[in-house]
Every structure is written in structure tokens, then in C-alpha cells.
């Protein structure tokens, strides 16, 4: 019997746990009001509304001033960008650019197109390092982008996800430089450990190209989880691993075939053929509007292990399997609850 879909309205950890416990009963169509599939409380589109914005907007006479203030902010932002008056960290992460350019571009996709629903946000700590491990799918790594938006917009602390990307990302012009500015860095242990040590939230998709470029018939079947490098990074830095299951990304570009000779020609891991690409040309770049669910599972602690355990392959393999199994089971559960890939 499939379990009920549970969407917490508040990020209160106790309540989430309580709901999960009683969620075994299938919730009828007329759901109790408290369990209605309402979106998780969303932060306003502007990441940091200026002080007094609520107060001024309340009176009609000052709406002009509000509009003026926003223009002033926009001009100040453009001025800072034009004069190079902003800071980036050693990884090339540019928070201002991410908040004002990258996230606003992704938000319509997140809110309107994929209608992403997040659960278990309370499992992601508000401060300190943590490693978010997620399944990878969708031909293009849109799932990574959506997870970034989810954690910035739907997490109470508005956390930036520092994603780890393949070297292909950084080899590609434009995509490479924008990714660095959005906080992506190369998937390698030194970078992951450096970020985790400085208390950042790091995101990793251990399936890599095997996951993102798998045929549509294999959807929601997890591929091999790399070589467990992410687990050793987590053990070395003692941060929790948060399994993250993403449902919906598999349907955005159903990969029906892989043109290997073309992939070799362009130096790509695969050359996708989807129902719309390359048949419809640039229109094929439009993802199908599937309904997405992102669930963050219970953190798996690693600080109970000694740092030296990171070099114990058996422990690393076991932990890798545990993370993989958790995500796979969550995927099955979420899929069983889903009635339709596009309407949810």
C-alpha cells in the first residue's frame, strides 16, 4: 500500500517527525486541512528586502517611493557591477550575482514550470557544514539548479548550496564561468573538504554522467554512486550526509537514444535524442513541465567515525550503500504517491 504524501507546513523538526510517523495511513482525497499540499512557506522573491519595505508599502501614498527605492537599489547594483565593487571567494562564488541574476532566472522555472514541492527541509542544518547527496537525472543537470533554488528560497536560513560539478562544466565556455559564480566548484576531495571545513552546504550528485545521461527506460533506477569519494570527504570533515531524493527531473527531457558518434565528435559523455530534440531544434531545449518533489531525508551522521576511518574502504562502501539505498527507497515511496508525472 503506498504511503501518503506528506508536506509539512512548518519547518518544525518535531512536527515533521510526528507527521512521518502517522503518515502510514493513506490520506483520503479530502485531506485534513493541516496536510493540504500547500507549498512550503516561500521567501519573497527579493532575497533581502530592505528595512521598512513592509511599512512603506502599506500606505498607498508611498508606493511611488517604494518603486523609486527599488530603482535606486537596481542602479546601485548595476553601479557596483560596472565598477567591479563586489567580492568573490576563492572558489569564484559571487553571492550578489547569484541572488540578483542566477536565482531570479531560475525561479520561474522552479515555481511555475516544475511547481517544485520540498519536504524535510528541517533535516538540513541552518548553520555549519553538511553534504547533500542527491540522485541525478534529466539529461541536463537541471535538478542541481532546482536544488540550489530550493535551499536558498525554501530553507529557513536561505542557504547557498555549493554544488560540485564535473570538469566538463568548467571546460565549457560561459557555463563554466557562470557556474563558478553561482557557487559550483570541481567535484574533487580537496574542494569538497575545504568547503565543508568552512561550514558550507555542499551538494553532490555521485551518479554523475551515468545518472544524468541514462535512458528514459531506466528512470529512477540509481546508478553506481561513484567511488564513495563524497563519503570520505564527509567523514574527514565530520559533517552529516543529507540524502536528497528528487522526483520529476527524469521526465523533463526523456532520453530515448544516445548518438555516440556525435557525442565523441563534440567530446561529450552522451548526445541525447529526446522526443523534442533535435527534431524541433532549439524548441527541444524547453523542458517538459513535470511536477517535482524534492525530499531531504534524515541526516546520516559521520562524526561518530574517526577521521582515519575515511581511509577504511569497507566503511566507506557501506556508508555509500546506505546513502544510496535511502535515496532509492525514498524515490520508490515518492513515485508510489505520485499519480501523474505532470500533474503530481
Amino acid at each position: 500500500m503506498p504511503q501518503a504524501r506528506v508536506i509539512p507546513l512548518h519547518s518544525d523538526p518535531n512536527r515533521v517527525v510526528a507527521r512521518r510517523a502517522d503518515a502510514r495511513v493513506r490520506v483520503p482525497v479530502e485531506r485534513p486541512a493541516g496536510l493540504a499540499p500547500v507549498r512550503v512557506v516561500r521567501r519573497p522573491a527579493a532575497p533581502e528586502p530592505g528595512p521598512g519595505s513592509v511599512g512603506t508599502a502599506a500606505t498607498t501614498t508611498t508606493t511611488g517611493a517604494d518603486w523609486e527605492r527599488r530603482l535606486e537599489e537596481l542602479l546601485a547594483f548595476l553601479g557596483r557591477r560596472l565598477t567591479g565593487d563586489y567580492g568573490v571567494d576563492e572558489f569564484g562564488f559571487d553571492p550578489e550575482f547569484t541572488d540578483h541574476v542566477v536565482l531570479p532566472l531560475l525561479r520561474p522555472l522552479y515555481q511555475r514550470w516544475f511547481r517544485v514541492e520540498t519536504t524535510g527541509m528541517s533535516n538540513v542544518p541552518s548553520t555549519g557544514g553538511a553534504l547533500v547527496v542527491a540522485n541525478h537525472s534529466g539529461t541536463l543537470p537541471v535538478d542541481g539548479l532546482m536544488t540550489m533554488v530550493a535551499l536558498r528560497d525554501d530553507h529557513p536560513a536561505g542557504r547557498y548550496l555549493r554544488a560540485l560539478g564535473a570538469d566538463l562544466v568548467f571546460r565549457t565556455p560561459m557555463i563554466g564561468s557562470v557556474s563558478r559564480k553561482a557557487g559550483v566548484t570541481l567535484a574533487c576531495n580537496p574542494d569538497a573538504e575545504r568547503l565543508l571545513n568552512t561550514g558550507e552546504l555542499v551538494g553532490v550528485w555521485p551518479e554523475g554522467f551515468k545518472g544524468v545521461g541514462k535512458p528514459f527506460k531506466d528512470r529512477y533506477k540509481l546508478q553506481r554512486f561513484g567511488r564513495g569519494g563524497f563519503v570520505s570527504a564527509a567523514i574527514r570533515t565530520g559533517v552529516p550526509i543529507i540524502p536528497c531524493s528528487i522526483v520529476g527531473a527524469e521526465e523533463i527531457y526523456p532520453l530515448v537514444a544516445d548518438l555516440k558518434p556525435l557525442a565523441r565528435l563534440f567530446g561529450l559523455p552522451y548526445f541525447p535524442v529526446t522526443p523534442t530534440f533535435p527534431a524541433l531544434g532549439p524548441l527541444g531545449a524547453l523542458p517538459l513541465p513535470s511536477k517535482w518533489y524534492i525530499e531531504f531525508g534524515e541526516p546520516i551522521r559521520t562524526d561518530t567515525h574517526a577521521t582515519a576511518d575515511a581511509d577504511d574502504p569497507m566503511l566507506v562502501f557501506n556508508l555509500t550503500d546506505q546513502v544510496r539505498e535511502t535515496i532509492q527507497q525514498t524515490l520508490y515511496r515518492l513515485l508510489a504517491q505520485r499519480r501523474n508525472a505532470f500533474t503530481g
Binding site: 572558489f91 568548467f170 563554466g176 570541481l186 580537496p190 574542494d191
Partner: peptide, 12 residues
């Protein structure tokens, strides 16, 4: 190179 870690230590 695009395959570089973000920061090089002396041992790399």
C-alpha cells in the same frame, strides 16, 4: 586547467 582544484596546496 578546468580540472584544477579551487586552491593548490604545496603538496599538489
Amino acid at each position: 586547467s578546468p580540472r584544477d582544484p579551487a586552491m593548490f596546496t604545496e603538496s599538489m
